[in-house]
């Protein structure tokens, strides 16, 4: 198991290395000159080449590309993530400030996904082809195919504008008011969660159905286990193996959804910051955001691999 974990972590680091190069190159290749736009934003109008060169020196843009890359990486590791070109703020504190908000959003949506998706998958597998199964499966398809923003608009209209249950947007920090915090996060997390729940439910259903057809389920019945015990002790664990893998792959969509949802609900998290940075061509912030997204996805996949190893002894135990 230890060897397996070390192996997974080193894979992640290698991937992170390549992703960082990609992000770095993309940052330079993107249309729009960051220096120009930064200089423009100072309101100086058209400026001389000297000023631009000064600017380049100040941000280290005069050096060769590979040196720039190494400087960037070194800075990143030592916590010097540079300054936002748009606001002049330090990028790292900007991040740290917003990270808990986005984490709360992620955890909330994972919570909804599991709470809705897993029971739905199990029930529709066990009641295969019943009206309940058909209803749930149709619901899942609708849940997955409605775009996040559309679901968001409808929910805001119904629950905020008409019923006044939840605030239409905005974020209340946990430290300020627990109830206010939960109310403000309920809709955004639910919207992201239902998207995941539809996917999760469908995979749980098909995976469980596949497992129930295996010989070892017949063995479990032949031992005299009741239906419930057969499902709980013999079917669920192996059924989760492919589901966990899919969950890792689908995480990218969740992250992408968070950008939209944060923007829509005016949640001051990382997604909103990233979107704003893109609009203002604020590339230190864009780069940092992209790296964090990559790290986030790698960490989630690392967790997935660990869960996978925990569930499946064929992965964990060497022959």
């Amino acid at each position: 198991m230890k060897q397996y974990i070390i192996q997974r972590i080193s894979y992640s680091l290698v991937i992170l290395f390549f992703v960082s190069i990609l992000i770095f190159v993309l940052g330079r290749a993107l249309p729009g000159d960051p220096v120009q736009s930064a200089v423009m934003s100072t309101g100086m109008g058209v400026v001389s080449d000297d000023v631009i060169d000064d600017f380049k020196v100040q941000f280290g843009l005069d050096k060769p590309l590979h040196i720039q890359y190494l400087l960037w990486i070194r800075g990143f590791i030592s916590g010097e993530w540079g300054r936002s070109i748009a606001t002049g703020e330090e990028v790292l504190p900007m991040f740290m400030h917003r990270l808990p908000i986005t984490l709360e959003l992620f955890l909330g949506s994972v919570f909804w996904s599991c709470i809705i998706g897993i029971p739905f998958g199990i029930i529709s597998a066990l009641r295969r082809n019943s009206w309940l199964d058909v209803t749930l499966t149709t619901g899942a398809i609708i849940g997955v195919s409605i775009p996040v923003f559309w679901e968001g608009i409808i929910m805001i209209y119904l629950f905020a504008v008409i019923m006044h249950i939840f605030p239409p947007s905005g974020y209340v920090p946990f430290s300020e008011s627990i109830q206010g915090n939960l109310l403000s996060m309920a809709m955004p997390t639910f919207i992201m969660g239902t998207q995941g729940a539809g996917l999760l439910g469908r995979y749980v259903r098909s995976s469980l159905l596949e497992v129930l057809g295996h010989d070892y389920i017949r063995t479990a019945h032949a031992k005299g286990l009741k239906e419930r015990a057969v499902i709980v002790r013999h079917a669920l664990k192996p059924a989760m193996i492919p589901v966990v893998t899919i969950a890792g792959l689908a995480w990218g969509y969740v992250v992408a959804g968070s950008f939209i949802v944060e923007y829509m609900f005016a949640i001051p998290g990382l997604g909103r910051m990233g979107v704003n940075a893109i609009f203002s061509n604020d590339f230190p912030v864009i780069q940092a955001t992209l790296v964090m997204v990559a790290i986030n996805i790698l960490i989630v996949n690392l967790i997935v691999d660990l869960i996978y190893g925990y569930i499946d002894p064929r992965v964990r135990v060497q022959q």
Partner: peptide, 8 residues
């Protein structure tokens, strides 16, 4: 091999 549960 198929009649035994692989995860138990």
């Amino acid at each position: 091999m198929t009649s035994l549960n692989p995860v138990l």
